[in-house]
Design a protein around this nucleic acid. Sequence first.
DNA 1: ATATGTACCATCTTGTCTCATGGTACACAG
DNA 2: CTGTGTACCATGAGACAAGATGGTACATAT
Lengths: 126, 126
Amino acid sequence: MEISIDLNGSDPVFAQLIGQIKAAVQSGALGPGDPLPSIRQLANDLELNSKTVAKAYRLLERDSVVETRGYRGTFVHPEAKSNSEVDLNAWVNQTLTATIAEFRKSGVTDAEIRNAFVNVMNEPNN
Amino acid sequence: MEISIDLNGSDPVFAQLIGQIKAAVQSGALGPGDPLPSIRQLANDLELNSKTVAKAYRLLERDSVVETRGYRGTFVHPEAKSNSEVDLNAWVNQTLTATIAEFRKSGVTDAEIRNAFVNVMNEPNN
DNA sequence: ATATGTACCATCTTGTCTCATGGTACACAG
DNA sequence: CTGTGTACCATGAGACAAGATGGTACATAT
């Protein structure tokens, strides 16, 4: 499992980590149950902050590509391969595109859309 | 038609202008066909930049509260009263609230939602 | 002791958007 | 020549968030 990080790239580091691990899963380089390097270990190898690696692992676990077993470490999820193909962000992107297109078609200003957006995001609701 | 602007308020100036003109329409102080002060005139009276007043007028016309007749000036729209009750922003707010709630329910991070949002807003599509 | 993931505190830089400002210019009509 | 709305150029201040960093601490189990 070789991971290379481009600090000068436009993609954030944590996203590069996610992308490369997902790619390794899909190519078969990483199989179900395979152990991943520990957060601190990987951070040390790549000379990154442990919080950055932790962030990538946290998101990978939310997508069920990775499984964390407490103090025992992090492992590839049994259904990692199929789960790594699901793109939550693509769905969010499509939905937002359609919604915003409708707003604009109705004459709503981009500034108004952005304004409403931050209002909704910052509301104490759920 | 008396308009007072609070520079220290949290609401932006152009929004205060819109609000007060809509209020004047709903109270009957301004009736259909009544002329509004010209952009430069009002800007001068309130010691504002003409672009700020122009912004307010532009949005009022989009909402059909006001009618611009080219070089002749700006006038209250025939159906200004009913149109000034329609709240475009409320619709945007409700729609976004529902959409975002669904995202969150699916485990999407706020940071991811925000990221997707700015991507969609900045896309060169229409 | 050592190592696991995780949680909280915090700072800093970078980037982007809003709001409001200013200047200049145009076509139009009185 | 003056006044209408409108359109471009541009800039500055302020707010906000992402990304990444650092330190400290915890319960867990070997």
